[in-house]
Design a binder for these strands. Structure first.
Lengths: 225, 225
DNA sequence: TCAAAAGTGTTGAAGCTACACCCATGC
DNA sequence: GCATGGGTGTAGCTTCAACACTTTTGA
Protein backbone atom coordinates (compact mmCIF):
# COMPACT_ATOMS: atom_id res chain seq x y z
CA UNK A 1 0.00 0.00 0.00
CA UNK A 2 1.14 3.52 -0.70
CA UNK A 3 0.28 6.66 1.22
CA UNK A 4 -0.89 9.53 -0.93
CA UNK A 5 1.22 12.39 0.19
CA UNK A 6 3.97 14.52 -1.33
CA UNK A 7 7.43 13.08 -1.42
CA UNK A 8 10.54 15.11 -0.77
CA UNK A 9 14.19 14.91 -1.48
CA UNK A 10 15.97 13.87 1.69
CA UNK A 11 19.66 14.59 2.05
CA UNK A 12 22.34 14.11 4.65
CA UNK A 13 25.01 16.71 5.37
CA UNK A 14 28.05 15.76 7.39
CA UNK A 15 29.93 18.19 9.58
CA UNK A 16 33.25 16.37 9.47
CA UNK A 17 35.60 17.49 12.21
CA UNK A 18 39.29 16.74 12.20
CA UNK A 19 42.12 17.99 14.39
CA UNK A 20 45.47 19.04 12.97
CA UNK A 21 48.19 21.51 13.89
CA UNK A 22 46.34 22.44 17.04
CA UNK A 23 43.23 23.42 15.13
CA UNK A 24 39.77 22.00 14.59
CA UNK A 25 39.20 21.63 10.89
CA UNK A 26 36.24 20.91 8.71
CA UNK A 27 36.19 18.98 5.46
CA UNK A 28 34.37 20.97 2.78
CA UNK A 29 34.09 20.75 -0.97
CA UNK A 30 33.30 23.27 -3.62
CA UNK A 31 29.86 22.81 -5.06
CA UNK A 32 29.94 21.67 -8.68
CA UNK A 33 26.40 22.38 -9.78
CA UNK A 34 24.08 25.32 -9.84
CA UNK A 35 22.72 26.91 -7.80
CA UNK A 36 25.57 28.28 -5.70
CA UNK A 37 28.23 26.71 -7.91
CA UNK A 38 31.70 27.34 -6.51
CA UNK A 39 30.69 28.11 -2.96
CA UNK A 40 31.76 25.64 -0.35
CA UNK A 41 29.56 22.94 0.99
CA UNK A 42 29.43 20.28 3.64
CA UNK A 43 29.96 16.74 2.45
CA UNK A 44 26.50 15.51 1.69
CA UNK A 45 24.36 13.35 -0.49
CA UNK A 46 20.84 12.22 -1.07
CA UNK A 47 19.22 9.40 0.86
CA UNK A 48 18.35 6.43 -1.31
CA UNK A 49 15.28 4.25 -1.15
CA UNK A 50 17.13 1.36 0.39
CA UNK A 51 19.15 3.01 3.11
CA UNK A 52 18.59 4.79 6.39
CA UNK A 53 19.89 8.32 6.89
CA UNK A 54 22.71 6.85 8.97
CA UNK A 55 23.59 4.50 6.11
CA UNK A 56 23.58 7.43 3.73
CA UNK A 57 25.87 9.44 5.99
CA UNK A 58 28.25 6.47 6.24
CA UNK A 59 28.20 6.14 2.48
CA UNK A 60 29.02 9.81 2.02
CA UNK A 61 31.88 9.55 4.50
CA UNK A 62 33.29 6.46 2.89
CA UNK A 63 33.11 7.87 -0.60
CA UNK A 64 34.81 11.11 0.37
CA UNK A 65 37.38 10.00 2.93
CA UNK A 66 37.76 6.28 2.34
CA UNK A 67 37.01 5.65 6.01
CA UNK A 68 34.55 3.23 7.59
CA UNK A 69 33.39 2.87 11.18
CA UNK A 70 33.45 6.56 11.80
CA UNK A 71 31.92 8.18 14.85
CA UNK A 72 28.64 9.64 13.66
CA UNK A 73 25.94 11.46 15.52
CA UNK A 74 22.70 13.01 14.35
CA UNK A 75 22.40 16.72 14.93
CA UNK A 76 19.00 17.72 13.59
CA UNK A 77 16.81 17.98 10.53
CA UNK A 78 16.97 21.21 8.55
CA UNK A 79 13.90 21.76 6.49
CA UNK A 80 13.09 25.38 5.74
CA UNK A 81 11.13 25.37 2.51
CA UNK A 82 13.57 27.64 0.69
CA UNK A 83 16.80 26.49 2.27
CA UNK A 84 17.96 25.09 -1.09
CA UNK A 85 16.85 27.40 -3.89
CA UNK A 86 17.17 24.62 -6.43
CA UNK A 87 14.68 22.21 -4.96
CA UNK A 88 12.79 21.29 -1.82
CA UNK A 89 15.29 19.32 0.21
CA UNK A 90 15.06 18.21 3.81
CA UNK A 91 18.52 17.62 5.18
CA UNK A 92 19.51 15.53 8.16
CA UNK A 93 22.75 16.85 9.62
CA UNK A 94 25.41 14.67 11.22
CA UNK A 95 28.59 15.30 13.09
CA UNK A 96 31.47 13.02 12.18
CA UNK A 97 34.82 12.86 13.94
CA UNK A 98 37.86 11.54 12.12
CA UNK A 99 41.62 11.44 12.45
CA UNK A 100 42.92 13.65 9.70
CA UNK A 101 46.06 11.58 9.30
CA UNK A 102 44.07 8.43 8.61
CA UNK A 103 41.85 9.52 5.78
CA UNK A 104 42.51 8.87 2.13
CA UNK A 105 44.19 12.07 1.01
CA UNK A 106 44.14 11.13 -2.68
CA UNK A 107 40.41 10.54 -2.54
CA UNK A 108 39.83 13.83 -0.84
CA UNK A 109 41.92 15.64 -3.44
CA UNK A 110 40.07 13.88 -6.21
CA UNK A 111 36.83 15.22 -4.77
CA UNK A 112 38.25 18.70 -4.68
CA UNK A 113 37.64 18.69 -0.98
CA UNK A 114 39.72 20.67 1.46
CA UNK A 115 40.25 20.92 5.19
CA UNK A 116 39.34 24.36 6.48
CA UNK A 117 40.21 25.68 9.93
CA UNK A 118 37.01 26.14 11.89
CA UNK A 119 37.56 29.82 12.42
CA UNK A 120 38.60 30.67 8.89
CA UNK A 121 35.78 29.13 6.94
CA UNK A 122 35.05 30.20 3.36
CA UNK A 123 31.67 31.30 2.14
CA UNK A 124 29.23 28.46 2.43
CA UNK A 125 26.11 27.54 0.53
CA UNK A 126 22.57 27.63 1.81
CA UNK A 127 22.21 27.15 5.56
CA UNK A 128 25.44 25.23 5.96
CA UNK A 129 26.93 27.80 8.26
CA UNK A 130 24.06 27.32 10.66
CA UNK A 131 24.41 23.56 10.37
CA UNK A 132 28.08 23.89 11.27
CA UNK A 133 27.24 26.03 14.29
CA UNK A 134 24.76 23.47 15.51
CA UNK A 135 27.27 20.74 14.81
CA UNK A 136 29.92 22.48 16.89
CA UNK A 137 27.50 22.90 19.76
CA UNK A 138 26.71 19.23 19.45
CA UNK A 139 30.42 18.40 19.64
CA UNK A 140 30.83 20.66 22.66
CA UNK A 141 27.95 18.96 24.38
CA UNK A 142 29.40 15.57 23.70
CA UNK A 143 32.82 16.64 24.93
CA UNK A 144 31.22 17.91 28.13
CA UNK A 145 29.75 14.53 28.99
CA UNK A 146 32.27 12.12 27.63
CA UNK A 147 35.99 12.51 27.32
CA UNK A 148 36.37 13.14 23.61
CA UNK A 149 39.55 12.60 21.71
CA UNK A 150 39.68 8.95 20.73
CA UNK A 151 38.23 9.78 17.32
CA UNK A 152 40.24 12.96 16.75
CA UNK A 153 43.68 12.39 18.23
CA UNK A 154 46.32 9.86 17.24
CA UNK A 155 46.30 6.52 19.00
CA UNK A 156 48.70 7.83 21.61
CA UNK A 157 48.79 11.40 22.78
CA UNK A 158 50.00 13.54 25.63
CA UNK A 159 47.71 15.22 28.11
CA UNK A 160 48.81 18.53 26.70
CA UNK A 161 47.59 17.49 23.26
CA UNK A 162 44.28 16.43 24.74
CA UNK A 163 44.02 19.70 26.59
CA UNK A 164 44.80 21.64 23.42
CA UNK A 165 42.00 19.76 21.69
CA UNK A 166 39.58 20.73 24.45
CA UNK A 167 40.74 24.30 24.24
CA UNK A 168 39.85 24.52 20.57
CA UNK A 169 36.56 22.67 21.01
CA UNK A 170 35.51 24.98 23.81
CA UNK A 171 37.35 28.03 22.54
CA UNK A 172 38.69 28.76 26.00
CA UNK A 173 41.82 27.89 28.01
CA UNK A 174 41.96 25.17 30.65
CA UNK A 175 44.19 25.20 33.70
CA UNK A 176 46.86 22.58 32.96
CA UNK A 177 47.02 21.12 36.46
CA UNK A 178 43.29 20.98 37.01
CA UNK A 179 42.66 19.57 33.56
CA UNK A 180 45.16 16.80 34.19
CA UNK A 181 43.64 15.85 37.52
CA UNK A 182 40.10 15.91 36.23
CA UNK A 183 40.86 13.85 33.16
CA UNK A 184 42.87 11.24 35.02
CA UNK A 185 40.17 10.93 37.67
CA UNK A 186 37.78 9.72 34.98
CA UNK A 187 39.80 6.57 34.74
CA UNK A 188 39.35 6.11 31.03
CA UNK A 189 42.95 6.69 29.99
CA UNK A 190 45.95 4.47 30.44
CA UNK A 191 49.47 5.74 30.62
CA UNK A 192 52.02 4.20 28.29
CA UNK A 193 55.65 3.82 29.20
CA UNK A 194 56.73 6.03 26.36
CA UNK A 195 57.41 9.70 26.46
CA UNK A 196 56.93 12.37 23.88
CA UNK A 197 60.01 14.58 23.90
CA UNK A 198 59.28 16.70 20.87
CA UNK A 199 56.93 19.13 22.56
CA UNK A 200 58.68 19.73 25.85
CA UNK A 201 62.14 19.52 27.24
CA UNK A 202 61.22 17.26 30.08
CA UNK A 203 59.15 14.87 28.01
CA UNK A 204 55.54 13.89 28.69
CA UNK A 205 54.06 10.45 28.99
CA UNK A 206 51.83 9.26 26.21
CA UNK A 207 48.35 8.11 27.10
CA UNK A 208 45.70 6.25 25.19
CA UNK A 209 42.03 5.51 25.69
CA UNK A 210 41.37 2.25 27.49
CA UNK A 211 39.57 -0.38 25.48
CA UNK A 212 35.84 -0.73 26.04
CA UNK A 213 35.65 1.74 28.85
CA UNK A 214 32.24 3.36 29.01
CA UNK A 215 33.74 6.80 29.34
CA UNK A 216 30.40 8.41 30.15
CA UNK A 217 28.45 8.21 33.37
CA UNK A 218 25.81 10.85 32.82
CA UNK A 219 27.69 13.56 34.67
CA UNK A 220 29.15 16.65 33.17
CA UNK A 221 32.91 16.53 33.10
CA UNK A 222 33.42 20.08 31.90
CA UNK A 223 31.11 22.99 32.04
CA UNK A 224 30.39 24.82 28.81
CA UNK A 225 31.60 28.39 29.53
CA UNK B 1 16.42 23.02 -11.57
CA UNK B 2 15.58 19.66 -10.16
CA UNK B 3 17.94 17.16 -8.63
CA UNK B 4 17.58 13.64 -9.97
CA UNK B 5 17.33 11.57 -6.89
CA UNK B 6 14.66 9.47 -5.21
CA UNK B 7 12.06 11.28 -3.17
CA UNK B 8 10.71 9.96 0.09
CA UNK B 9 7.70 10.42 2.26
CA UNK B 10 8.68 12.59 5.21
CA UNK B 11 6.55 12.51 8.33
CA UNK B 12 6.57 14.11 11.74
CA UNK B 13 5.66 12.22 14.90
CA UNK B 14 4.95 14.13 18.09
CA UNK B 15 5.60 12.73 21.54
CA UNK B 16 3.05 14.88 23.34
CA UNK B 17 3.61 14.95 27.07
CA UNK B 18 1.01 16.14 29.54
CA UNK B 19 0.88 16.00 33.32
CA UNK B 20 -2.27 15.03 35.18
CA UNK B 21 -3.11 13.32 38.46
CA UNK B 22 0.55 13.13 39.34
CA UNK B 23 1.38 11.23 36.20
CA UNK B 24 3.14 11.95 32.94
CA UNK B 25 0.78 11.12 30.11
CA UNK B 26 1.10 10.74 26.38
CA UNK B 27 -1.48 11.60 23.79
CA UNK B 28 -1.96 8.69 21.37
CA UNK B 29 -4.52 7.74 18.79
CA UNK B 30 -5.56 4.45 17.30
CA UNK B 31 -4.36 4.01 13.79
CA UNK B 32 -7.16 4.00 11.27
CA UNK B 33 -5.48 2.54 8.23
CA UNK B 34 -3.61 -0.58 7.37
CA UNK B 35 -1.00 -1.65 8.13
CA UNK B 36 -1.20 -1.95 11.91
CA UNK B 37 -4.79 -0.76 12.01
CA UNK B 38 -6.04 -0.48 15.58
CA UNK B 39 -2.67 -0.28 17.28
CA UNK B 40 -1.84 2.99 18.94
CA UNK B 41 0.24 5.64 17.36
CA UNK B 42 1.90 8.93 18.11
CA UNK B 43 0.21 11.98 16.71
CA UNK B 44 1.80 12.45 13.34
CA UNK B 45 1.36 13.54 9.81
CA UNK B 46 3.17 13.99 6.56
CA UNK B 47 5.28 16.99 5.71
CA UNK B 48 3.89 19.04 2.86
CA UNK B 49 5.79 20.72 0.07
CA UNK B 50 5.26 24.17 1.51
CA UNK B 51 6.11 23.70 5.16
CA UNK B 52 9.11 22.93 7.31
CA UNK B 53 9.07 19.93 9.61
CA UNK B 54 8.48 22.33 12.52
CA UNK B 55 5.50 23.78 10.68
CA UNK B 56 4.17 20.30 10.08
CA UNK B 57 4.53 19.40 13.76
CA UNK B 58 2.73 22.60 14.75
CA UNK B 59 -0.02 21.78 12.29
CA UNK B 60 -0.42 18.28 13.71
CA UNK B 61 -0.56 19.65 17.25
CA UNK B 62 -3.10 22.27 16.34
CA UNK B 63 -5.33 19.88 14.48
CA UNK B 64 -5.32 17.33 17.27
CA UNK B 65 -5.33 19.50 20.39
CA UNK B 66 -6.53 22.89 19.19
CA UNK B 67 -3.43 24.49 20.72
CA UNK B 68 -0.96 26.90 19.19
CA UNK B 69 2.37 28.16 20.47
CA UNK B 70 3.29 24.88 22.00
CA UNK B 71 6.76 24.05 23.27
CA UNK B 72 8.28 21.88 20.59
CA UNK B 73 11.71 20.33 20.29
CA UNK B 74 13.25 18.09 17.68
CA UNK B 75 14.36 14.71 18.93
CA UNK B 76 15.78 12.91 15.92
CA UNK B 77 15.07 11.45 12.51
CA UNK B 78 13.97 7.82 12.37
CA UNK B 79 14.60 6.29 9.03
CA UNK B 80 15.10 2.53 9.07
CA UNK B 81 14.08 1.32 5.64
CA UNK B 82 11.43 -1.05 6.96
CA UNK B 83 10.21 0.96 9.94
CA UNK B 84 6.82 1.43 8.29
CA UNK B 85 5.85 -1.74 6.44
CA UNK B 86 3.40 0.18 4.29
CA UNK B 87 5.85 2.56 2.66
CA UNK B 88 9.26 4.10 2.94
CA UNK B 89 8.77 6.90 5.42
CA UNK B 90 11.41 8.99 7.15
CA UNK B 91 10.00 10.44 10.34
CA UNK B 92 11.23 13.43 12.29
CA UNK B 93 10.28 13.05 15.93
CA UNK B 94 9.36 15.94 18.20
CA UNK B 95 8.67 16.33 21.88
CA UNK B 96 5.77 18.61 22.73
CA UNK B 97 4.77 19.74 26.21
CA UNK B 98 1.24 20.86 26.90
CA UNK B 99 -1.08 21.55 29.82
CA UNK B 100 -3.65 18.81 29.71
CA UNK B 101 -6.33 21.06 31.14
CA UNK B 102 -5.90 23.55 28.32
CA UNK B 103 -6.33 21.41 25.27
CA UNK B 104 -9.52 21.00 23.30
CA UNK B 105 -11.04 17.86 24.77
CA UNK B 106 -13.81 17.63 22.19
CA UNK B 107 -11.30 17.75 19.37
CA UNK B 108 -9.20 15.07 20.99
CA UNK B 109 -12.24 12.86 21.44
CA UNK B 110 -13.26 13.44 17.87
CA UNK B 111 -9.86 12.18 16.79
CA UNK B 112 -10.30 9.09 18.90
CA UNK B 113 -7.18 10.15 20.76
CA UNK B 114 -6.55 9.28 24.37
CA UNK B 115 -4.17 10.23 27.14
CA UNK B 116 -2.15 7.23 28.31
CA UNK B 117 -0.05 7.15 31.46
CA UNK B 118 3.59 6.87 30.47
CA UNK B 119 4.11 3.63 32.31
CA UNK B 120 0.95 1.91 31.12
CA UNK B 121 1.23 2.39 27.41
CA UNK B 122 -0.73 0.22 24.99
CA UNK B 123 0.80 -1.65 22.11
CA UNK B 124 2.28 0.81 19.65
CA UNK B 125 2.85 0.70 15.92
CA UNK B 126 6.19 0.52 14.18
CA UNK B 127 9.08 2.04 16.10
CA UNK B 128 6.93 4.41 18.12
CA UNK B 129 7.97 2.87 21.41
CA UNK B 130 11.58 3.65 20.64
CA UNK B 131 10.62 7.16 19.60
CA UNK B 132 8.85 7.61 22.93
CA UNK B 133 11.89 6.38 24.83
CA UNK B 134 14.11 8.82 23.02
CA UNK B 135 11.55 11.54 23.60
CA UNK B 136 11.50 10.88 27.31
CA UNK B 137 15.27 11.00 27.46
CA UNK B 138 15.08 14.27 25.62
CA UNK B 139 12.62 15.62 28.18
CA UNK B 140 14.84 14.44 31.02
CA UNK B 141 17.79 16.16 29.49
CA UNK B 142 15.87 19.37 29.11
CA UNK B 143 14.61 19.19 32.69
CA UNK B 144 18.17 18.72 33.88
CA UNK B 145 19.34 21.99 32.34
CA UNK B 146 16.32 24.20 32.60
CA UNK B 147 13.66 24.22 35.24
CA UNK B 148 10.80 22.58 33.41
CA UNK B 149 7.20 22.94 34.38
CA UNK B 150 5.92 26.11 32.79
CA UNK B 151 4.52 24.13 29.89
CA UNK B 152 3.18 21.23 31.92
CA UNK B 153 1.87 22.67 35.17
CA UNK B 154 -0.98 25.12 35.73
CA UNK B 155 -0.12 28.81 35.82
CA UNK B 156 0.35 28.67 39.58
CA UNK B 157 1.60 25.64 41.42
CA UNK B 158 3.16 24.63 44.71
CA UNK B 159 6.72 23.48 45.07
CA UNK B 160 5.39 20.07 45.97
CA UNK B 161 3.57 19.87 42.65
CA UNK B 162 6.73 20.87 40.84
CA UNK B 163 8.68 18.27 42.77
CA UNK B 164 6.13 15.61 41.94
CA UNK B 165 6.49 16.49 38.28
CA UNK B 166 10.24 16.08 38.52
CA UNK B 167 9.79 12.78 40.29
CA UNK B 168 7.76 11.36 37.43
CA UNK B 169 10.04 12.81 34.77
CA UNK B 170 13.09 11.33 36.43
CA UNK B 171 11.34 8.31 37.87
CA UNK B 172 13.04 8.82 41.21
CA UNK B 173 12.28 10.65 44.48
CA UNK B 174 13.74 14.03 45.39
CA UNK B 175 14.44 15.18 48.93
CA UNK B 176 11.79 17.82 49.65
CA UNK B 177 14.03 20.24 51.50
CA UNK B 178 16.91 20.04 49.09
CA UNK B 179 14.64 20.28 46.07
CA UNK B 180 13.05 23.42 47.46
CA UNK B 181 16.39 25.07 48.15
CA UNK B 182 17.84 24.18 44.77
CA UNK B 183 14.82 25.33 42.81
CA UNK B 184 14.49 28.62 44.67
CA UNK B 185 18.18 29.33 44.26
CA UNK B 186 17.68 29.36 40.48
CA UNK B 187 15.73 32.55 40.88
CA UNK B 188 13.27 31.84 38.11
CA UNK B 189 10.15 31.45 40.26
CA UNK B 190 8.19 34.10 42.04
CA UNK B 191 6.09 33.41 45.11
CA UNK B 192 2.50 34.51 45.06
CA UNK B 193 0.68 35.63 48.17
CA UNK B 194 -1.82 32.86 47.86
CA UNK B 195 -1.71 29.50 49.51
CA UNK B 196 -2.90 26.15 48.35
CA UNK B 197 -4.63 24.45 51.26
CA UNK B 198 -6.07 21.45 49.49
CA UNK B 199 -2.95 19.36 49.51
CA UNK B 200 -1.64 19.98 52.98
CA UNK B 201 -2.98 21.03 56.33
CA UNK B 202 -0.55 23.87 56.73
CA UNK B 203 -1.02 25.27 53.27
CA UNK B 204 1.75 25.93 50.75
CA UNK B 205 2.47 29.09 48.82
CA UNK B 206 1.77 29.09 45.14
CA UNK B 207 4.61 29.97 42.80
CA UNK B 208 4.75 30.81 39.13
CA UNK B 209 7.49 31.19 36.57
CA UNK B 210 8.82 34.72 36.24
CA UNK B 211 8.21 36.36 32.91
CA UNK B 212 11.09 36.37 30.45
CA UNK B 213 13.59 34.83 32.79
CA UNK B 214 16.22 32.93 30.89
CA UNK B 215 15.89 29.93 33.16
CA UNK B 216 18.94 28.21 31.73
CA UNK B 217 22.58 29.11 32.24
CA UNK B 218 24.29 26.07 30.78
CA UNK B 219 24.73 24.31 34.11
CA UNK B 220 23.07 21.13 35.13
CA UNK B 221 20.45 21.72 37.77
CA UNK B 222 19.72 18.08 38.47
CA UNK B 223 21.77 15.05 37.70
CA UNK B 224 20.13 12.29 35.71
CA UNK B 225 20.31 9.27 38.05
C1' DT C 1 -3.27 14.30 69.73
C1' DC C 2 -1.39 12.81 65.76
C1' DA C 3 -0.15 12.64 61.01
C1' DA C 4 1.45 15.07 57.08
C1' DA C 5 3.24 18.49 54.56
C1' DA C 6 5.73 23.22 54.84
C1' DG C 7 9.68 25.21 55.57
C1' DT C 8 14.52 26.01 57.77
C1' DG C 9 18.98 24.64 59.50
C1' DT C 10 23.23 21.79 59.94
C1' DT C 11 26.96 18.90 58.92
C1' DG C 12 30.31 16.28 56.39
C1' DA C 13 31.93 14.92 51.94
C1' DA C 14 33.24 16.12 47.43
C1' DG C 15 34.58 18.96 43.78
C1' DC C 16 36.34 22.95 41.74
C1' DT C 17 39.46 27.17 41.13
C1' DA C 18 43.34 29.52 41.46
C1' DC C 19 47.31 29.23 42.49
C1' DA C 20 52.25 27.92 44.31
C1' DC C 21 55.84 24.94 43.81
C1' DC C 22 59.44 21.57 42.34
C1' DC C 23 61.32 18.69 38.29
C1' DA C 24 63.76 17.81 34.03
C1' DT C 25 66.01 19.36 30.14
C1' DG C 26 67.23 21.77 25.72
C1' DC C 27 69.05 25.98 24.52
C1' DG D 1 71.18 29.81 34.01
C1' DC D 2 66.75 30.20 32.35
C1' DA D 3 62.60 29.38 29.93
C1' DT D 4 59.25 25.81 29.12
C1' DG D 5 56.21 22.44 29.84
C1' DG D 6 55.51 18.20 33.24
C1' DG D 7 53.61 17.08 37.22
C1' DT D 8 51.99 17.51 42.34
C1' DG D 9 50.06 19.87 46.25
C1' DT D 10 46.98 22.92 48.76
C1' DA D 11 43.75 26.63 50.69
C1' DG D 12 39.32 28.48 50.15
C1' DC D 13 35.11 28.24 48.27
C1' DT D 14 30.76 26.23 46.60
C1' DT D 15 27.69 22.56 46.13
C1' DC D 16 25.20 18.72 47.56
C1' DA D 17 23.09 14.77 50.12
C1' DA D 18 21.25 13.33 54.23
C1' DC D 19 18.74 14.24 57.86
C1' DA D 20 17.12 16.75 62.09
C1' DC D 21 13.88 19.87 63.61
C1' DT D 22 10.16 23.22 64.12
C1' DT D 23 5.58 24.98 62.35
C1' DT D 24 0.80 24.59 61.14
C1' DT D 25 -3.56 22.63 60.97
C1' DG D 26 -7.24 19.23 59.52
C1' DA D 27 -9.04 14.96 60.88
Amino acid sequence: MVYHHPKLLVAVDCVIFGYEDGELKLLLRPREIEPALGKWSLMGGFVGLEESVEDAAMRVLYSTTGLKDIYLEQVAAFSAVDRDPGARVVSIAFVALIRIDQHDKALVRENGAHWWPLNQLPELIFDHEKIINDGLRSLQKRASFELTGKELLPEKFTLMQLRSLYEVIYQRPFDPGNFRKKVLSLNVLERLNIKNTTESKKGAFYYRFKESEDNSNGDRIFKIN
